[in-house]
Design a protein around this nucleic acid. Sequence first.
RNA 1: GCCCCCAUCGUCUAGCGGCCUAGGACAUCGCCCUUUCAAGGCGGAGAUCACGGGUUCGAAUCCCGUUGGGGGUACCA
Length: 506
Amino acid sequence: MSASDPHTTTTRAARTRFAPSPTGFQHIGGYRTALFSWLLARHTGGQFLLRIEDTDTARTVPGAVDAVIEGFKWLGLEIDEGPEVGGPFGPYFQTQRRDLYLIYAEQLIAGGHAYRCFCTPERLQRVREEQRARSEPPRYDRHCRYLTPSEIAAQLDEGQSYVVRLAAPTSGKTVVKDALRTEIVFENASLDDAVLLKSNGLPTYHLANVIDDHLMLITHVLRAEEWIPSAPLHAITYQALGWEPPIFAHVPDVLAPQGGKKLSKRFGAIPLLEYRERGYLPAAILNYMALLGWSYDDKSNTLSREQLIEAFDLDRVGVAPARYDEERLLWFNGYYIRQLAPEELTGHVLPFMERVEAEGGLPDSVARPLDRAYTARVLQLEQERMKTLADAPAMTSFFFVNALSYEPRTLIAKHMDAERTLDGLRRSHATLAALTGWEAAEMEARLRELVAELGLKPVQLFTSLRVAVTGRTVSPPLFETMETLGRATSMARIEQAIEALAAYPG
RNA sequence: GCCCCCAUCGUCUAGCGGCCUAGGACAUCGCCCUUUCAAGGCGGAGAUCACGGGUUCGAAUCCCGUUGGGGGUACCA
C-alpha cells in the first residue's frame, strides 16, 4: 500500500463522493444523500467529489450532468473534485475510464475471482423462466463458470462475445458492515454471479464503483439503501482485489408524500432546480433535507449551513425511511425569508416580480425594470407573509398597478352599511387631505380620532380604507401601506372608492 | 417465490435499561397581541412507543417471533 492510501494514514478526514448516473434529473432524495456526504467531508475537513456513472450509455440523458452540477452550485455545496473542476484522480466520467476497468477485470479473471461468460441473452432469459417455473430464485446458473480452458479458447477463437462475471463464493457467509446498522449477514449460497463487465467492454456498477472508490481514495460510501442487496458482491470484489473496503453507510429512502413508496422521478418528486423556480431558498432546502433522516438533538430545528457542518455526524443518521413533507419545507422557507436582510430580500425577489405575468410575475402592464428602492419598501411590508419568493408578485401587485379592480360591496365592513361607509370614506379623505405630511404614525393618529368621533370601531373604518387603497380585504398594515403607496395614489384610490360606492346600491 | 432493510404523535424526529405520567418541530385547535392577514407569545389536543413472547428488580430502549411497510432479484444504476 502506498503512503497516500487512506487506510494506512491516521487522518480522520473523510473523502466522500456523490456518484449519480446521468439518466434524468436529481430530486430531493438524491441531493439529501449527497448533502450527508458533503457534510461528512466538510465536518472532517476532507473532500467531496462528484463522479458521473455513465456506463449505461443507452440511458444517458444530455444535459443531466450540467443540471446536477448546477444544483450543487445553487445549494452552495462546493465540489472539490469532479467533472467541471477536475482533480488528481480523474477522469470523473466512467466512460472515460474504461481501460482501467478492463485491466482489473483481467486481474480478477487471472486470480480466479471472475470468469468469461458466453451465454446469450436468450439463454439467460430461458434459464430464468425455468427457475421461476420451479419457483426458484432467478439467477445465473453458472454455466460458463466451469468451462475448461480449451472450451474457453474455442469460444474466443470463434469471436464469441462475452461478459465477465464475478465468481461468487457458493458457501459460507459474507458480512457487510454498515456504519448505520448492525452487521448484515448474507448466505453466499444465495448470491448471484453478477456481471462485472458488459459485452461492450464497459463495466457495470458493481465493478466500476469498487474500482473508482478505491482509486479515488474514497473513505466513506454513502448511498441509498437500495444498494444493500448488492453490497456483499462489492465486499467480495474488494477482497478479491486485495483492497480494504471503505466504510459503507446505506442511508434510508425519502418517501413520496402519498403512499409508502420511494420518492422518484415518476412518483412525487420534482427536479431540485424546480424549487429555485418556485421561489425556495437554498438555506431552507438544505435545512429541511438535513433533517430528513438526521437530527442533532431533541431541540434544534433551524440550523445554518455552518451549524450543519459543525454538528453533522454519521452516528446521528437514522435508518427508517422519512416522508417528504411539503408543509414543513414551506415553513422552513418562510422562516429563512424572514431572516433575510432588506437588501437580500429585494435581490432575491426582484427576478420573480419582473417575470412575465404568464410565468407568475407582476401584470404585464407594470413597466420593467421595477424601481428598486420602491420595491424594497414594498417587500419589507410583505416579508413576514411570504412562504416562497414566488408569492411576492400576487401579494404586492396593488402596489404597482394603475387601476384596482374589486367589488364595491367589499368596501362595507361587518356591521356597517353603504351609507355609513361612504360617510367614513369621505371624512377619512378630508382628514388625510388636511395632513401636511404623509407618515404612517400621523395618519394613524388622525384617523383614530376620526374613528372615535364617528363612534365606530377601528376595524369598521379601516377595513373600508384597506379595500379602497389596496382593493383587497387582506393586506399589510394599512398606514404603512398608504405611506409606501404615496399620497397621490392613496388619495386617488379613496376618491375612486367613494365614487364606486356612491353608485353601488343603484 | 427467495434475499435484505425498516417500524415512537397525521408528518420529521428526541430517546441508545431506571431522568419517560415519552421531549421538540411542522401541521391542527384555542387564547393573547391586533386595523385585516401574517409574524410573535401562551396553551390544548394528538403516540396503549406495530403486535406477541421473553431477558431484567426495572424495556420505547436488549433478544426471538408475528404482522405491516419498503427495497433487491437486469449485459440499469
